[in-house]
Design a protein around this nucleic acid. Structure first.
Lengths: 335, 335
DNA sequence: CTGTTAGCGCATTCAC
DNA sequence: GTGAATGCGCTAACAG
């Protein structure tokens, strides 16, 4: 049995409310009483039950982070950013993984309606289906902030990067480097961020007067990685295979790299790859990979900050939208 | 205001206890009453308050995972494993990051004494200092399971890999490949797993009659990565620089790779690298890296499973110890 | 300054 | 089969 506020009150022959106030350092308690209470609490290693207080104060000090996965370095860094501000605020971070499955996302959000957490940060799962489960959450009054993988139609705060622009810039960069047949590797037809990046890719073609070959837009959305590998392999075995590849997310960027290895294609002589990826990964590759790097840590931090602003000041942030800049980083070859 | 059990009782003109029982599908409630209650609950989108029930039942359905960081792919995979079993058990995973700082670890564990979670999974932070904070947790009756980075002296369940053996095998492999001057890159003098891997490294020297040069054992334990980089660089600039490197964790393995790039050292001609790392990383490198790969996902899963066994059956698992095998994986060169 | 009282939402006796 | 009462641990009026 754990020691409670009541135990302390009994031992000290005072009222529980006095103990409660003393522990919260209320101004209406005398210094000496506080001393006694504090001493007794320390002696018994008293630890307040957070959920009892939560019941009363209607604050759980928990926030949820709902993610597709955590293998990717983007989401790892985002968790770091989120955790860093949560730690400051003395909040706790409950992590949920959807594995990019809508059914899981549904059941997770369904559960979150209960008041288990004070707010939710999320990056949506890929897949078809509406957003009723998200609206259900909102209807329960649970504040929500999207980051990276957002749903445009849902009225909630959003933290994103300049996906259209970076898709454009990445493509432009390859074109300027001399690539003439460009491929776009995606993982989804339905995710907004990927659609935007693809549009940037297409826009660059338009601006630079390059034709678009639809065969070159490949969706690696198979759960079986081997299939995705084959899909990219087939692309690179075409007679008029691309000499430039835009990897729209880290997974496919590295996938392209692996396939090139497998086919013994020279990078960048045969194929030039430019992709969304974390710098640490890029630094290991040889030849070095030009990357579009998202400020993942900052995005997590920003999203969490907006959430806490909502929580604390009860401000309605549902129409807020923060756009952070991705960076296109080219590394010098060391060969 | 959320709809509670009481609201339903009022609306249906029945007692709250009846509603409570009906919702839990108690045998002592008639089928028709259950129907009515369930219908009404659904209609109002009733969601039970988990913390109210927690107060009564003394179960929070939360477990904590305390980690040094989440950048590394080892811990990402471990979280995946943990989450997968937690999801099955309808438990929630609260993630805490120590950033390898003992003071943070202390404050986190201190907080966890409160009963916020039903159990704790942890991989300890590096650094000097005792383990009173861990014992304090145990004294509060919070079950704890260590994984990977354990503390031998603490009486708690432990899930580890065969660190001594894999340290030996890694070194042996390099020796057999022809490396004669071996370096061991570590990140800590105090972590058990690293000490074991180092001992395996030393043992291999003994077995194969190779001298050990203490200068070759480098600790990259600086918070500033640039300093660690310099440290390894200095090592590789020695006149009798190593021609074989054992990277004891992913971070230093990739670091060694980067430094070799920087110094334009040929791998494996000039220096052969073999390190603990995730396969995905290894697959990207060229020339391919021979790795010791820990079953991170399985470790997380195993640790969580042990924790739940303790939680459910109230079995004392404090002397349990599970040793999983790491794999030494060599990739064929594609050059 | 301190104590009494009344919940927070739910689950569990124990009557009826 | 149902309901009234009690309490989980804590906080917040409101008295005194």
């Amino acid at each position: 049995m754990n020691v409670t506020i009541k135990k302390i009150a009994d031992e000290l022959q005072i009222a529980v409310s006095t103990v409660s106030k003393a522990l919260r350092d209320s101004y209406e308690i005398s210094a000496e009483t506080k001393q006694k209470v504090l001493e007794c609490a320390k002696r018994h290693d008293y630890t307040p039950n957070p959920y009892a207080s939560s019941l009363k104060r209607r604050i759980t000090a928990n926030i949820a982070v709902v993610l597709p996965e955590v293998a990717d370095s983007f989401f790892s860094a985002a968790i770091n950013g989120i955790e860093s501000v949560a730690y400051e605020k003395k909040y706790h971070v409950v992590v949920y993984l959807t594995h990019d499955r809508k059914d899981r996302e549904h059941s997770i959000l369904h559960d979150l309606r209960s008041g288990r957490v004070d707010g939710v940060l999320m990056s949506v799962a890929d897949g078809p289906g509406g957003s009723e489960h998200i609206n259900d959450l909102a209807n329960k009054g649970v504040p929500l902030v999207f980051f990276d993988r957002i749903i445009e139609d849902v009225r909630a705060a959003k933290v994103v990067t300049d996906d259209y622009d970076s898709g454009f810039k990445a493509t432009e960069h390859l074109i300027k480097k001399g690539s003439t047949r460009l491929s776009f590797l995606s993982i989804s037809k339905s995710l907004t961020i990927l659609d935007l990046r693809l549009r940037g890719f297409l826009k660059a073609h338009e601006v630079y007067g390059l034709p678009v070959n639809k065969e070159m837009i490949v969706h690696c959305d198979d759960n079986d990685e081997a299939n995705n590998f084959e899909r990219v392999k087939k692309l690179l075995e075409l007679k008029d295979r691309p000499n430039g590849i835009v990897g729209s997310v880290e997974k496919v960027t590295t996938l392209a790299y692996s396939v090139c290895r497998d086919l013994k294609l020279k990078i960048p002589e045969d194929v030039r790859i430019l992709g969304f990826a974390h710098l640490q990964i890029a630094a290991l590759l040889d030849p070095p990979l030009t990357t579009v790097t998202q400020p993942a840590f900052e995005m997590g931090k920003a999203a969490a900050t907006i959430l806490f602003k909502t929580l604390e000041k009860k401000i309605d942030s549902r129409s807020e939208r923060l756009v952070l800049q991705s960076e296109l980083i080219e590394r010098a070859s060391t060969r």
